[in-house]
Nucleic acid binder design. Sequence first.
RNA 1: UGCCCGGUCGUCUAAGGGUAGGACAGCUGGUUUUGGUCCAGUCAGUGGGGGUUCGAAUCCUCCCCGGGCAACCA
Length: 565
Amino acid sequence: MSDTSPSEERTSRNFIEEIIERDLKEGRHKSVLTRFPPEPNGYLHIGHAKSITLNFGLAEKYGGETNLRFDDTNPVTETVEYVENIKQDVRWLGYEWAREKYASDYFEHLFDFAIRLIRDGLAYVDDSTSEEIAAMKGTPTRPGTDSPYRSRTPEENEDLFHRMREGEFPEGSCILRAKIDMSSPNMLMRDPVIYRIKHAPHHRTGDKWCIYPTYDMAHGQSDAIEKITHSICTLEFMPHRELYDWLIDKLDLYPSRQYEFARLNMSYTIMSKRRLLKLVEDGIVDGWDDPRMPTISGLRRRGFTPEAIRDFCTRIGVAKRDNVIDVSLLEFCAREHLNKISLRRMVVFDPVKLVITNWPDGEVEELESENNPEDESAGTRKIPFGGELYIEREDFMEDPPKKFFRLGPGRSVRLKSAFIITCDDFIRDENGRLTEIRSRYHPESKSGSDTSGIKAKGTLHWVSITHAHKIEVREYDRLFTVANPSEEADKNDGKFIDYINSDSLNVVPVAYAEPAIAGDAPGNYYQFMRKGYYFPDKATTREKQIYNRTVTLRDDWARKSKQGK
RNA sequence: UGCCCGGUCGUCUAAGGGUAGGACAGCUGGUUUUGGUCCAGUCAGUGGGGGUUCGAAUCCUCCCCGGGCAACCA
């Protein structure tokens, strides 16, 4: 029992947690309300998972709530299909939102806000072309110039804006701009566009509207309407904060505050939704949920667990400096969780026949093996053992080096959960290809009751030939050949396609699995012993089972032998 | 060349004037019926120069480097 006074345990907090704790302590807020604001124009990826974990995690930690709010202000790129998939992904990650909202819920409200700005002389309708507006914007080093339409009266502007809404004008003919400061050092404050005409149906409001608010006109106001306390976004929105605050101030709304953190980058992949879409459209991958994609749906199909992804998102931390997380951290998180929960099964990928010469002809013995050595409650399963087995071709060498703990002439190994065998002979065909290994087993070395006294350094996985269940296995490697594809692409006219790894998918059409796998309930996470972690693909059927390799096991032997070369 | 951010082991991330710590990756060993897991150990960092201070990753200053900003995208 610890009766020591709580010694001000200094747990490390990220900068946003510090802000929240300060706000709570100083009474600025009584509770926390965050939001996760995806635009439904693509699928969620691991970078969004960071944001989701942050927003929902913060609310969880400080006893608050999180809204899911779709930032659906651009009907041209947004669809209900994206909305549905985003919701599915957030739920799969393990989060449930307090309210489901859409920026489009507030279109009428936002329109009224615009009218208020107009009446207060803080917004005007500009008939300039987009080229003219761009030219008048100036550059980061040179101030902009006022539009000739900047001095229209509020009455004229209000009339024009209503007529924009009524559909009197074609797209591009005019827009509504906030009237701020054309010489501001912040380009975003140089009379930003806040409403534009789009004669396009919206996935929720149909054809009710032909004018739509821009991000800046919608986001902060939606936050304020919902009374979001901490509006957390990525670094590239930093310059928007001044405009965010300006609008809240001029419209006298609830003072939501925006805070920016560095988005996630991960080695050997890309996070740009635009570029991910291109991979899908060009058929380089098999859809948004291709197991090589960094999308939530891709990771799910690949066999990553929500727990592993959440763990990853908390381990990477939250800060403001640009970062590239090593993908090996994600793999570590996957292995750590999968090691605890996965069912162990034996699967031989590249078989060679192993004959047990002293095994009674035709006899089959059912051996028992644990499903998961990390979890006794996972129970055991039976594995048939007989006189003809498959083992992995790479587990035999005719002339093995000393440190090779597997099979070779005269050598003994343990067959996992079975017997120790000793290799007496092997057969090669006319091409020198190994076709058969002949060995004898030691009856008193049976797993669990070994009295043989024989020492075997290595243990091999195996499967009885007559009982083997054929499965297909898909092995995945990183999608790109370079650690930072986006950076390389930026230096290469944006052509990230040049860095695609052409060997990122290897299909093993037939692998031989122990029969237990055929009877397992669907949806299990597996470890194929000595190989890696595998998960049934969505296309798997009872007749044809297909497994995706999530990640290999760590393999010191492979690493060392590679080093030796 | 203007404005705004940022710079701590290879990669992330702590230390908020008082011993630069953790994780991943790497490397050594030990245990092991998975060359897995687990355990132990080890390598490795404050961008640079001045200044303030008994004491600076931390405060000041100059410099260097990286990122962002000129969509009717978000």
